[in-house]
Structures are given as structure tokens and as C-alpha cells.
Design a protein around this nucleic acid. Structure first.
Length: 822
RNA sequence: GCCCGGAUGGCGGAAUGGUAGACGCGGAGGCCUCAAAAGCCUCUAUUCGAAAGGGUGUGUGGGUUCGAAUCCCACUCCGGGCACCA
């Protein structure tokens, strides 16, 4: 494509200028109003792909726009540089992950620079940087001292592909690993956890205060999964001292309990299992132990496997509501890790219980009147209580209250809240991560590495393989250490931290990477936090965004972040992903379209404009055959603007004309429209109004009576200002051509519309007859209702359609429209 | 199964109770040129009509309203999230 200017020369000129000018570096004592703009820091995967381009285009737009709004904008960049891909690549090549990582950081940095995105690079953070590691370890130890980090044996998720344990959040709904896609196995292992469940209530409550996309908030609420109910005791028949605690959210259905279930992991299972039932129960327990999460949680609707997935224990418990004896089963549909690990089963009003009862031929007693025509099994809807003694005829809510009181009095009942959220498993059996700074001493137990010995760094000569053992575990020199407390021979912890721990506080480090001896100075951090605009992918809706919220609260509570807001990200924007042939554009799918070819043709400015223009930023983008044409179109728009601004094709006149006022009105209306679009994340319409304005100015200056220079100049300058955050290079170049090297476009303030120019002399009023448009009239904007009606009725076409008949009714909304009802 | 989005020309999309289809892509025609590329101009939902003008039209069916892409009810399809959490 032949262009009126040299894209590469212009773009590299300005990129170099931004790199060296320090214009986008902000100090912590900057007196301007502050704005913290942040894109989620990336895993360094090499040259940027279109997803990065899209993300950083939005981020850079925010930075430049807010800067022109007069704010001190904090715009840092860094790398989430620990993680499996580098380690796996290193194993394959017999090399060290640091080499891969450092190389890829350089590549990604270069891509970002070529996009023209501006950052305060003095604040750069890399997870694998020893300084950052030191403070990450220090935070771990603070959590450990505060009891927020603990070691426990638990049934955990093990990914055979990644040869490490995973957090619950990293396991998909189908029981596969979120990264590798392997089926996750369950293992009983001793691991490190963060007590995120301590914060379940706060994490849930504060979601309401966040300006986040509704669906992200919903996903977090569901993940935390709060449910309110009653815990009470079921006394075992024949053993008055023995009872099973159960949890229910439907105490009102107590009269419908026809059996009870304990989880295969339940501590009382052995005690209550009778001799005759021992083998059946043992078989069930063994089956559950080896079954994958997937098998265990497979849909309950398939009755086929269900029969085998439960066994009678031989014991009975007494239903406190009616004194009935009901059998106790063990079944794998009850989880040992939730509630009390045991339930009262009400097949009539619970679908899972219904399915189980159906297969095991257990009785079903309805306690809610089913609606007429209801044909399903369990009925979970509203209705009057039946078969329920003192609850009969009442609604469910009232019955719940009464039944709860009953249980409190008669069955050691207590109102309880349960959460689906589990503690965060943070240890990983991998090499390329931050070592957990703990020493295991036979005498002293778990001993923190003294602060002055941080960071614990992994040695470079570690054998990384996929044996499943932590690579550090086999390095004798690393592991062997004297206990800091008693001096005896001890062993260093060999596991590393989940990389999500790194991304849980990097945004705090960005605010103050300068202080010595501190992760960050709370005063400096408080001057920037919370992040005013956080931008990233929807794929982090739960994982990163939940962990970071937890870290923020925990850091405050352990005293590292006093005075900071408890929520780190005030506003979140999640961009759509890029799809090609129906699937996400990604390195693993091999369908990447590298940005370089567009840097060469339409330039970074053209490509940025495309990402802004292609559709609403939150929507997914389909990369199709049409895409290249649209990108060319964006380049064409910049070319036209450039050519027009040269003035060679314009006719200039020295006297004023009515056309000048009309143009100025278009210009000032465009200021409003573009600003609104930028404020409301409607970048596509902002670009559209600039394109429209260019068409208008072009017509004004090249056709008809021609252009008046000052009006033309105002139009061009305004367009450059409005376009500056979107296409920063070419606009900066044009500004310099017009105003000289002393004036820098990006240092200008955002244009302010002249209110007087936002009002037109006449507006188009629509005349409808019976709701159909029959005429359009030019009327003054302050036309009265009577005048509007008169003008409407006088219209020739309206007259013709009315056939002289008097209107039955006239609705006038001056000056927009008049609707005549014949 | 439950929850949340969404459905508008050939395509991406605009319009959140008042002119449906802004803007762009694609397409058609024209100007410029020896010719092409580039650029520029005009047209481009559909249908009847020579035109003036009219009919139809925002997934489907109903409703509210002077007036509905927009609000309400029911349904269909598409996308996403969650899914034995008692």
C-alpha cells in the first residue's frame, strides 16, 4: 500500500523519543491527581500475539488519555516469569529455564515497544528476579507466622502431565488440568496451604463494592459458594452416646428424611459399620479412593453406576422430627470435605437424594405439595408443607425458621454457614518457581529461614525431570542445612510456590520498587492504590483475581500494608479474546497471526486503530478473511487524515462563510462523542465518529466554497488531539509538523467542547402518521408543541395520507417528533 | 440441569422508548490514467414503481404504548460459566 508518509521512520522516531524522554515516568511525589492504569502482567511467551496487542492497545489508550486529562498516570510493566512452559522447554533442550525466560522477555519487550505502548520502565518487575523473590518469600513467612500459611496432609489434585499438585482453582469442571488438559488424579499428600477460607465472607461481601463486569462477579460469588443452613445431630440407634452431625440448607424438609449418608472419608464410618456390611462398605471406600475426581463427580442422572456407588452401613439413626429410624448409607456423592461430611437425605426434595433413593429402592415422602401436573422426581420449588406435623400448611421460609428452632432445641442444632471455597494449595513440585523459605528440623519442626538469609535461591545445577519429585529434593547441597533455631542437621523445603503467589502482589511492588528492605512502602503504595483501571483477560476471572484480593487483605492483616484499601482493583475491564476458525487464537493451537506484518504495512497505529474499531472491546474478535481488509481500511483512514492536513487538496478562502459554523459544530460534537466513547469503553464508536468527522472536514475543505484557514486548523488539531491516545505516532508527527518541535501532542490537554457550538439552528423533526414516518421537517430546536403540531399537519404528504380527516390525537415531542393518530 | 450473556444488511457493527442500519469492510458504477495501481466521487436492507411514492423488515409468537431493535411474557438457536457443595 502506497502511503503518504513513511510509517517505519515515523514510528521508530517517536518510540525512541518516548523511550528516552521520561515523559511517562511518574514519581511518587507527583502533585497531579493520580491514576493507576494496569494491564495484567504477562507470562513471557516471546513475541507478542494479537491478544497482547489488543490488551496493551487498550491499556496504552487509557494511559495516554488520562495523561491528557491532566493526571499523573502510573503505567508499569513486568513479567510473570516463573512457570512451567520455561521449565518444560529447558528439560527438552537440556538447558536452564532462566535462559529461555530472559530471551522471551526481551522479545516481548521489543514487541510492546513496537506497538508504541508507553511505560515507566524504571518500575519493571520480574517474578524470577532475586529481589522480587526475596520479598515474595518474606511475605510467605509473614503469612506463616500469622498462621495463614500452614502445612497439612490432604487429598489433593495431582496432574500427571505437569508432575505437580494443583490448586482446586486450576482443575476444570471436567476434572482435567486447566493447563495441560490431563485428567487430574487424587493423592494423599502433605502440602502447603494459604488460609484463604478465613476470608471467604469478606471476599464475598466486598464483591458488591467493585466496578467489575457482572459476570466476573457472579463467577467469584459462585466459586466462594456461601450457603446458610443448620447443623444438627442424628443419634445412632442403639448407641445413645454416638451421633452423626449433618448439615442441611432445608431443615423444613426434616419430616421427609428417609435415610442418611456419610462420606467414604467420614471418621465414624468404621464405628457404625456392622460386621455383615464390612465388605460392601470397604469395597465402596476403596473404589472411591482410586476413582478420579471425574468419575466421582460424574452426573448423578445416570442411574447405572449409582447402585455401586453407595452401600448400607448396617446402622440406623433416629430422625429427630418424627422419631423414625432411618438407615445410614455410605455414598461417594457426599463429600468428606464439605459441611460435616454427612447429610440427612430427603429424596422428595433433593435431586441427588432422589436419584440415589430411586436406585436403592428407598422410600420417598413428600413434604411440599407438588404443583398440578408436576411429573419430575424431586420437587425443589415453593408450595405448602404437607406430611410435616407442626409445619403443615406453612410456606417454606416460615417452616425453615420453625424447623431450625426445633433442631436447636431438640437435636443440638446450630445455625451454620458453609463455603464451597477451599484453602489455596500453594506448594508445587517444580523447579522454576520461588522456593518456599522453610527449614524442616527434626527437633524444632517447621522453621522459617531467617530474614537476613533471604532470598532462598535454587542452585543452577539441578536435575529437572518428570519423576514427580520436587527437583530441589534431590540436590543434597541445597537441602542440607543447619537448623537456624537449634543448629542440628535439618532439611530445606524442596517445593516451590504456585506462580499465582507472584501475581498476587506485583501491582503493589510497582507502586514502590525503590525502597530498600521493604516489599513496598505502605505509604507509597497507599498513594496509588487501588488500581483505578485493571485490564486483562476473562480467563483470570477466578484464579488470579480471587488470589490477589486475598493477598491484599492478608497483607494488611499481617501488618505489611497498613493503610491500604482492602480491595486492590477498583475497576476491572475484561477484554474479549481473539478467535480464529472458532477457537481461541493461541500459541498452543498454532493459529497465531503475528503483529509484525501489520507493523510493516499499516504500522502500529493502523493495527491499534483496528483493535479499537473492530467492535466493542469486551466482545470476542473473529479473525477472518475480512480482517486484513479492515486493517487496511484503518491505515487508509490515517493516510486520508495525513493528506488532508497537508492542505494541498483544499481550497482556502480568506472570508468567512456559514459553512464554517456548521463545521465547527461538527468538530465540537465530535469532542463530546469521542470522550463519551472513551469513558464508556465504547472505543469502536469513538473511532467511528472520528472517521465521520474526517469525511465532513474533507468535504468542507475540498468542495463547495472551500475552507477558512482558522476553522480548518481547529478541525485538524482537534482530530489529532482526539486521536492521540489511539494512534499516537502519526498524530505526534503531524502535530510536530504543524506546531514545531517545541510543542508535544501528548503533553497537550484533552480538548474541551464549546457548549454554544453543541446546539444547532435547526433540527430534523420527524412526522409520523399512525407510527409511520411520513415527513421530515427542519425546525428550530426550541419549537413549541403547538407550532410543531401545526407544521406537521401542514405537510403535504401528511395531508395526502390523512385525506382531509381530522386527527383523533396528536402526540408532539418537540423538537424530535410529532405522531398523528388518524 | 442451573446461572449469565447474545441474536440487527453479504460481513464487523451503530442506535437503550421517538429518523433502524452511523462508521467500516465487501460490492456496483463513474472520474483520473496510454494502461494499471493508488486516489477521488456516487450508489448499495429488501420489494413494487419510470418517478413521486408505497409495502415489508432488528431470531419466533404474543403483550404494553400514540410510538418498541430497545420494556414485559413465552419459545428457538448460539456463546460462556457452574455443576453431586447437601
Amino acid at each position: 500500500m502506497a502511503r503518504p508518509f513513511n510509517v517505519r521512520d515515523i514510528e521508530s522516531k517517536w518510540q525512541e523519543r518516548w523511550r528516552t524522554s521520561g515523559f511517562y515516568e511518574v514519581d511518587n511525589d507527583d502533585p497531579r491527581e493520580r491514576f493507576y492504569a494496569l494491564c495484567m502482567y504477562p507470562y513471557p511467551s516471546g513475541v507478542a500475539h494479537q491478544g497482547h496487542v489488543r490488551n496493551y492497545t487498550f491499556g496504552d489508550l487509557v494511559v495516554r488519555y488520562q495523561t491528557m486529562r491532566g493526571r499523573a498516570v502510573l503505567s508499569p510493566f513486568g513479567f510473570d516469569s516463573f512457570g512451567l512452559p520455561a521449565e518444560n522447554a529447558a528439560i527438552k533442550a537440556g538447558s536452564h529455564p532462566r535462559l529461555f525466560t530472559d530471551q522471551r522477555i526481551l522479545e516481548l519487550k521489543e514487541s510492546v515497544r513496537q506497538l508504541g505502548a508507553v511505560y515507566d520502565w524504571r518500575r519493571e518487575v520480574q517474578s524470577h528476579d532475586p529481589t522480587y523473590m526475596k520479598y515474595a518469600q518474606m511475605i510467605f513467612l509473614k503469612f506463616f507466622e500469622a498462621g495463614l500459611a500452614y502445612r497439612a496432609k490432604a487429598t489433593v489434585n495431582w496432574c500427571p502431565g505437569c508432575v505437580t499438585v494443583l490448586a482446586n482453582e486450576q482443575v476444570g469442571a471436567d476434572g482435567t488440568c486447566e493447563r495441560s488438559g490431563d485428567l487430574v488424579e487424587r493423592k494423599e499428600l502433605e502440602q502447603w496451604f494459604f488460609r484463604i477460607t478465613d476470608y471467604a465472607e469478606e471476599l464475598l461481601k466486598e464483591i458488591d463494592t467493585l466496578e467489575w463486569p457482572e459476570r466476573v462477579k457472579t463467577m467469584q460469588r459462585n466459586w466462594i459458594g456461601r450457603s446458610e443452613g443448620v447443623e444438627f445431630s442424628l443419634v445412632v440407634e442403639g448407641s445413645p452416646d454416638l451421633s452423626i452431625r449433618v448439615f442441611t440448607t432445608r431443615p423444613d424438609t426434616g419430616f421427609g428424611v428417609t435415610y442418611a449418608v456419610v462420606a467414604p472419608e467420614h471418621p465414624l464410618l468404621e464405628t457404625i459399620t456392622t460386621n455383615e456390611q464390612k465388605s460392601a462398605v470397604a469395597e465402596l471406600v476403596e473404589r472411591t479412593r482410586v476413582a478420579s475426581e471425574l468419575e466421582r463427580t460424574a452426573s448423578s442422572s445416570g442411574g447405572d453406576g449409582l447402585e455401586k456407588r453407595g452401600a448400607f452401613t448396617g446402622s440406623y439413626v433416629i430422625n429427630p422430627f418424627n422419631g423414625a429410624r432411618v438407615p445410614v448409607y455410605v455414598a461417594d456423592y457426599v463429600l468428606g470435605t464439605y459441611g460435616t461430611g454427612a447429610i440427612m437425605a430427603v429424596p422428595s426434595e433433593d435431586e441427588r437424594d432422589y436419584a440415589f433413593a430411586h436406585v436403592h429402592k428407598l422410600p420417598i415422602v413428600r413434604t411440599v405439595q407438588i404443583p398440578e401436573g408436576f411429573t419430575g422426581g424431586a420437587y425443589t420449588g415453593e408450595g405448602p408443607k404437607i406430611n410435616s406435623d407442626f409445619l403443615n400448611g406453612l410456606d417454606i421460609a416460615t417452616s425453615k425458621t420453625l424447623a431450625t428452632e426445633f433442631l436447636i432445641e431438640k437435636a443440638e442444632g446450630a445455625v451454620t454457614v458453609n463455603y464451597r471455597l477451599r484453602d489455596w494449595l500453594v506448594s508445587r513440585q517444580r523447579f522454576w518457581g520461588n522456593p518456599i523459605p522453610i527449614i524442616h528440623c527434626g527437633a524444632c519442626g517447621l522453621v522459617p529461614v531467617p530474614l537476613d538469609q533471604l532470598p532462598v535461591l535454587a542452585p543452577d545445577d539441578v536435575v529437572m525431570d518428570k519423576s514427580g519429585q520436587s527437583p530441589l529434593a534431590t540436590h543434597e547441597e541445597f537441602r542440607k542445612v543447619a537448623c537456624p533455631r537449634c543448629g542440628a542437621d535439618a532439611r530445606r523445603e524442596a517445593d516451590t510456590m504456585d506462580t499465582f503467589t507472584d501475581s498476587s502482589w506485583y501491582f503493589l511492588r510497582f507502586t514502590d520498587p525503590f525502597s530498600e528492605g521493604l516489599a513496598f512502602d505502605p505509604v507509597a503504595a497507599a498513594s496509588w492504590m487501588p488500581v483505578d483501571q485493571y485490564i486483562g483477560g476473562i480467563e483470570h476471572a477466578i484464579l488470579h483475581l480471587l488470589y490477589a484480593r486475598f493477598y491484599m487483605k492478608a497483607l494488611i492483616d499481617v501488618g505489611l500494608a497498613e493503610g491500604l484499601p482492602r480491595e486492590p482493583f477498583r475497576r476491572l475491564f475484561t477484554q474479549g479474546m481473539i478467535r480464529m476458525d472458532g477457537s481461541k487464537m493461541s500459541k498452543s493451537k498454532g493459529n497465531l497471526v503475528a503483529p509484525q506484518q501489520y507493523y510493516d504495512s499499516v504500522g502500529a497505529d493502523g493495527l491499534r486503530l483496528f483493535h479499537l474499531f473492530v467492535g466493542p472491546p469486551a466482545d470476542d474478535v473473529d479473525w477472518t478473511q475480512q480482517t486484513n481488509d479492515v486493517i487496511d481500511g484503518c491505515g487508509r483512514f490515517l493516510d486520508r487524515l495525513y493528506r488532508l492536513a497537508q492542505g494541498d487538496e483544499c481550497h482556502f478562502r480568506t472570508d468567512e462563510s456559514p459553512a464554517d459554523l456548521a463545521l465547527r459544530r461538527s468538530v465540537h460534537k465530535t469532542i463530546v462523542r469521542v470522550s463519551d466513547g472513551l469513558d464508556k469503553w465504547s472505543y469502536n464508536t469513538s473511532v467511528a465518529s472520528l472517521m465521520e468527522l474526517l469525511n465532513t472536514v474533507s468535504k468542507y475543505a475540498r468542495e463547495g466554497s472551500g475552507a477558512f484557514r482558522p476553522v480548518f486548523d481547529e478541525a485538524i488539531d482537534t482530530m489529532l488531539l482526539l486521536l492521540a491516545p489511539m494512534a499516537p505516532h502519526v498524530t505526534a508527527e503531524m502535530w510536530e509538523q504543524r506546531h514545531g518541535a517545541a510543542s508535544e501532542l501528548h503533553a497537550q490537554l484533552w480538548p474541551v467542547p464549546d457548549a454554544a457550538l453543541l446546539i444547532d439552528d435547526t433540527v430534523t423533526m420527524v412526522v409520523q402518521v399512525a407510527g409511520k414516518v411520513r415527513a421530515r421537517l427542519e425546525v428550530p430546536p426550541d419549537i413549541s408543541e403547538a407550532d410543531a403540531t401545526t407544521a406537521a399537519l401542514a405537510d403535504e404528504n401528511v395531508q395526502r395520507i390523512l385525506l382531509g380527516a381530522a386527527p383523533r390525537r396528536v402526540v408532539a415531542v418537540p423538537p424530535r417528533m410529532v405522531n398523528i393518530v388518524p
